[in-house]
Measured scan of single mutants.
Amino acid sequence: MTEYKLVVVGAGGVGKSALTIQLIQNHFVDEYDPTIEDSYRKQVVIDGETCLLDILDTAGQEEYSAMRDQYMRTGEGFLCVFAINNTKSFEDIHHYREQIKRVKDSEDVPMVLVGNKCDLPSRTVDTKQAQDLARSYGIPFIETSAKTRQGVDDAFYTLVREIRKHKEKMSKDGKKKKKKSKTKCVIM
């Protein structure tokens, strides 16, 4: 069974824990209790493949930012979460993405942009803004509501699919490099 290491990042209060708990335990946590770091595991079937999701729910508070490099190193894919009623959390996505790329030393890291709290009427981040940002990053965008469960499975499952595509691409690139290195030079 394939294991996928997913990391949920975003500013404090955007609903990272609520999304994760909704996926794992099928219930909505409405009281806000700032996370330092929590880890969850769940076995699911995605596109006919049974897999184990190892999900790291991270601290959004700035005082825990020193811990970010460590979990970013171990993560295979990242859910970059903002709240649709919090423009600052949307603007912060850029910083999370840049930090992930720096730590992973790669421009090509599996990510999904997630606009959470889409059940709320007080939207300050337009869907088109988020779609445009995701398009500019070359990553999928999904709106979710941890409260109603809308888009929750889709967000995590899409990230797994992005990781699969990335692994497939990397193995193809690896095979191309191996083929090239088999060419021999004969000096007579």
Rank of each mutant, 00 (worst) to 15 (best):
K167P: 02
D154A: 09
V160Y: 06
K178D: 15
T158G: 04
D126K: 06
T127W: 12
L159T: 01
D154H: 09
T158E: 07
H166P: 01
V160N: 02
R135M: 13
F156T: 02
T127M: 12
T144D: 01
I139T: 06
H166T: 09
E162K: 05
K175F: 13
A155Y: 00
Y137A: 12
K182V: 01
A130W: 15
V160F: 07
A155P: 07
V125C: 06
F156H: 01
K178F: 09
K175P: 13
A130P: 02
D132C: 04
Q129C: 08
T127Q: 09
Y137I: 14
A130H: 07
D126G: 11
A130T: 07
T127H: 07
T158L: 08
E168G: 06
D153C: 11
K147E: 13
V186A: 06
S181L: 09
V186G: 14
D154W: 03
Q131F: 06
K177G: 09
Q131E: 14
L133D: 04
D154C: 05
V152R: 04
V160D: 01
C185A: 15
D173T: 05
L159D: 00
H166S: 08
F156P: 00
A130E: 04
A134G: 05
K128Q: 14
A155S: 03
Q131M: 08
L159A: 02
D126A: 08
Y137V: 14
R164L: 04
E162S: 03
R164N: 02
L133N: 09
D154R: 06
M188C: 02
Y137T: 08
R135G: 11
D173F: 06
F156W: 03
D132V: 03
T127K: 09
K177A: 15
I139L: 07
Q129W: 13
D173I: 06
Q131A: 10
Q150V: 13
T127P: 07
F156L: 10
D153L: 12
Y137S: 11
D132E: 13
E162Y: 01
D132N: 08
R135N: 09
K169V: 15
Y137K: 05
D153E: 14
T127R: 05
V152N: 07
F156I: 15
D126L: 06
L159E: 00
F141W: 05
D154E: 13
Q150I: 15
K128Y: 10
S181E: 15
L133T: 07
K177R: 03
V152I: 15
Q129L: 11
K176F: 03
T158S: 09
G174V: 07
R135T: 10
Y137L: 13
S181P: 06
A130N: 06
T158F: 03
K169M: 10
Q150R: 11
E162T: 03
Y137R: 05
A146F: 00
M188R: 15
Q131C: 04
V186L: 10
R164E: 11
T127E: 12
D154M: 07
G151W: 08
A130S: 04
L133I: 08
I142H: 05
Y137N: 09
L159K: 00
L133Q: 07
A155G: 04
M170F: 06
K167S: 05
K178S: 12
Y137Q: 10
F156Y: 04
A155R: 00
G174S: 11
D154S: 10
V152A: 06
F156V: 12
D153W: 06
K178H: 09
F156M: 07
Y137M: 14
H166L: 10
A155M: 11
K165F: 01
V160C: 04
V152F: 13
K167A: 07
K178Y: 11
H166Y: 10
D154N: 09
V125S: 13
L133C: 06
T127F: 12
A155Q: 01
K169G: 14
A130D: 03
R149G: 13
K178G: 14
D153I: 13
D154V: 05
K177S: 11
V125R: 10
Y157G: 13
A155F: 01
A155I: 08
D132Q: 05
V160M: 07
T127L: 12
Q131R: 15
V160Q: 05
D153S: 13
K175C: 15
A146I: 00
V125N: 02
K176S: 12
H166K: 08
R135Q: 12
R149A: 13
F156R: 00
L133F: 13
A130R: 02
K128L: 09
D126C: 10
V160P: 00
K167T: 05
L133G: 03
D153N: 11
S136L: 09
E162W: 01
D153Y: 09
K180R: 15
D153H: 12
K178E: 14
L159S: 00
K175Q: 15
M188Q: 15
H166C: 07
R135W: 03
D132K: 06
S136Y: 04
A155C: 10
E162I: 01
I142L: 08
R135Y: 06
T127D: 12
A130K: 03
V160T: 04
K172S: 14
K167C: 02
R149E: 14
D126S: 11
K165L: 03
K169C: 09
L159Y: 00
H166F: 12
D126P: 03
A155L: 05
E162R: 03
Q131I: 05
D126Y: 10
E162M: 08
F141S: 01
S145G: 14
V152W: 15
I139S: 04
Y157E: 15
T127Y: 11
K175I: 04
G138W: 00
A130C: 12
R164C: 03
V160I: 11
V152S: 04
D126H: 10
K167F: 02
E162N: 05
Y137C: 08
D126W: 07
K128I: 12
T158V: 02
A130Y: 15
K178V: 05
L159R: 00
Y157L: 12
R164S: 14
Y157P: 04
L159F: 00
L133H: 08
D132M: 04
S145H: 04
K172M: 14
F156G: 00
Y157F: 11
D154L: 08
Y157M: 14
T127A: 10
S145W: 02
E162L: 04
Y157T: 11
S136V: 04
I139G: 02
R135I: 05
T127V: 12
K176A: 15
T127I: 13
H166V: 10
K182F: 01
L133K: 07
K128V: 08
D132Y: 02
A130Q: 06
K128C: 12
D154G: 05
K176Y: 13
K172Q: 04
A134L: 03
A134T: 02
K165S: 03
D173S: 03
L133V: 09
K167Q: 13
I139Y: 03
